[in-house]
């Protein structure tokens, strides 16, 4: 077991070193953009909307932006950078010539993608705290949820990558899955305002469940009754990881 984890961490540390080398630009993309949304929509739209579910609109939006950024951080690296490592740099081929297998690579990558989510979530939480949007220490409980979110969307992104033959392929996933999911998961407005059939569809996807757990936590409330929602991203994480391992085995070991 210790040996297995050591192999996963070897992959994780390779990606962590690569990230450190370009951290400045990486941070700008993963961190500045969500903050622009938070400011522009939070204050701009917030001045019309007033309060939502008993909190200021920007407070409401903070939980949504936090969830979305966690998703995006893992998704984009799991699509574009993982594909680059696999097909362009042939980093995975080099790793497979060492005593590691496909499962080690996928597990190491998923852990790294979740770490990317954690970095993004931590930064946004810090800024939100600086702006006085998060006041309670209990909000730190958001971070493990953000990590689970990263496992879920990182694994899904790798699964998409396992089917990709070029970067163009990712447009389908982003346009047809990620973007509608952001709009229909209660990020910008309460989920309950959506019509019943749409809610049913969106509830099959993980993001809505993440938002349901993160929103009370950002407000400093731990609602144990909401925790079952985490089963959805956890199930997606396990399912997508297993499927991705199977897919990459067929693709790379042929």
């Amino acid at each position: 077991m210790a040996d297995t984890v050591r192999r996963w961490l070897a992959v994780w540390r390779r990606n962590a070193l690569a990230w450190r080398k370009s951290a400045r630009t990486a941070l700008l993309a993963g961190f500045a953009e969500p903050l622009f949304y938070l400011f522009a929509l939070g204050y701009g739209l917030g001045s019309f909307v007033g309060q939502v579910q008993g909190v200021s609109y920007i407070g409401f939006l903070t939980a949504g932006i936090l969830s979305t950024s966690a998703m995006n951080a893992a998704t984009f690296e799991g699509l574009y950078l993982a594909y680059t490592r696999m097909e362009v740099l042939k980093t995975w081929d080099a790793i497979l010539a060492a005593p590691l297998g496909i499962a080690d690579i996928v597990a190491g990558e998923v852990l790294w993608l979740a770490t990317k989510s954690l970095i993004s979530g931590t930064l946004i939480l810090m800024v939100a705290a600086g702006m006085g949007l998060v006041v309670d220490w209990q909000a730190l409980a958001v971070l493990p949820v953000v990590f689970i979110t990263g496992l879920c969307f990182g694994a899904l992104a790798l699964l998409v990558t396992s089917f990709a033959r070029s970067y163009d392929f990712f447009v389908y996933y982003i346009t047809l899955v990620i973007t509608p999911m952001i709009l229909l998961s209660g990020v910008f407005f309460p989920f309950s305002t959506l019509p019943e059939p749409v809610r049913f569809g969106a509830a099959l996807l993980p993001l809505q469940h993440v938002v349901e757990v993160i929103r009370p936590l950002v407000g400093g409330r731990i609602e144990l009754g909401q925790l079952w929602h985490l089963l959805v991203p956890v199930a997606y994480a396990f399912g997508a990881t297993s499927f991705a391992i199977w897919r990459f085995r067929r693709r790379l070991l042929c």
């Binding site: 192999r7 370009s22 042939k90 980093t91 080099a94």
Partner: peptide
């Protein structure tokens, strides 16, 4: 075809690869 890591230095390439062997 060389599959060295272009993001890393010569020494880092060796150090990262050594981790795969524990």
């Amino acid at each position: 075809s060389d599959n060295l890591d272009p993001d890393f230095t010569v020494e880092e390439n060796l150090r990262v690869y050594a981790r795969y062997f524990g």
